[in-house]
Design a protein around this nucleic acid. Sequence first.
DNA 1: GAATATATTGTACTTATTACAATCCCGTAT
DNA 2: ATACGGGATTGTAATAAGTACAATATATTC
Lengths: 136, 136
Amino acid sequence: MDSTERLKEKGIRPSHQRIRIYETLASTKAHPSAEAIYKELSEELPTLSRTTVYSTLDLFAEKGLAQRLALSGSELRYDADISRHVHFRCRGCGSVSDLAAVRAPAPPEAQEGYVVESSQFYAEGLCPACSSRLDP
Amino acid sequence: MDSTERLKEKGIRPSHQRIRIYETLASTKAHPSAEAIYKELSEELPTLSRTTVYSTLDLFAEKGLAQRLALSGSELRYDADISRHVHFRCRGCGSVSDLAAVRAPAPPEAQEGYVVESSQFYAEGLCPACSSRLDP
DNA sequence: GAATATATTGTACTTATTACAATCCCGTAT
DNA sequence: ATACGGGATTGTAATAAGTACAATATATTC
Ligand SMILES: [Mn+2]
Ligand SMILES: [Mn+2]
Ligand SMILES: [Zn+2]
Ligand SMILES: [Zn+2]
C-alpha cells in the first residue's frame, strides 16, 4: 500500500508535504527528530517550513501513523514502525536504534482510575561503535 | 541514615544546598523537575541559583543517588527512589506517579556490542483525577 | 592563616518547540 | 470555469528547558 493510502486510512489529508514527510520517516531506521526530517527534505522542498514538519509529525503521532519517542536527550524522535518494540539510545553519539532481540513488555494493566494510553520501554548506554571507541 | 551520610556514601560533598536539594527530592512522590525544586527551595534559600539545582540533580543522577526520568513532556523529572519501578505520566495535568502494582521489566540483555547502562519503562494516559474530569 | 580546590552564583546563550497571523492551496458548489 | 471556504503551509516571533562560562564564595589542605 502506498503512502497516500496509509495517510487516508488514518484520516489524514494526503498533502504533498505530508506524503514526503511520511515517506522520509518510513524509509529510515534512524528514528529521526523533526529537525532531521526538515534538513533531509529541505533540498527537495526548499519552501518547506519547520512548523509544517513539527505539526505533521505531531499529527502522525496523534492519529497513530507514527510513534513519538521521548528518550533521554533533548529532542523527540519519531518512528514509522508502530509495532511494540524496544529502543536504545547511545549517550555517546545520540543515535537511537531498535533492540530487536528484546521482547517488549505489554502495556501495564490500568490501575484503579488510571487510563493507560501508551507505554514505552527503552534502554540507554553505548552503541557498538561508541563502546569500542570509548571503552577499551 | 540521614541525608548527609547518603551523600557522603556516594562520594558527594554534602554542602548545605546539596543536602536541602536532596531532602526536598526525597520528601516528595511528585517526581519534581529542576524548576519545581528550585521554586520549592527559593523561599528558604533566597540566593539559591537555578544553575546549582540543575548541576546538583545532574550530579545525583551520575552518582546513582537519584534517577533521572525522561518521559514525554518537555522537562526532565527526578526521583530519589532509585529502585526499579514503573512510572506514569498524565497528559492532562502533567503529573508523574509510580505504578506500584506493575512489575518493572529487567534491564534488557546487552546485544552484541551494546553496553546497556540503564533502562526505563513508563506509561502515559490520564490519571484518576483527569480521567474523571475529562472522560465522562 | 595562606594556598588550593571545589561549589555556588548570575548572566548570557543555545536549542527544541510552540503561538500566531498571513497566505496558499484544493475540493466543492455555483 | 469561477468563486468560495476551510484546512494546510509558511515565516516570524516568542517560550521554555537546559548549558556555558567567568566571577565570587566557601571549604580543605598545608
Ligand atoms: Mn523503532
Ligand atoms: Mn518513582
Ligand atoms: Zn554511539
Ligand atoms: Zn492528571
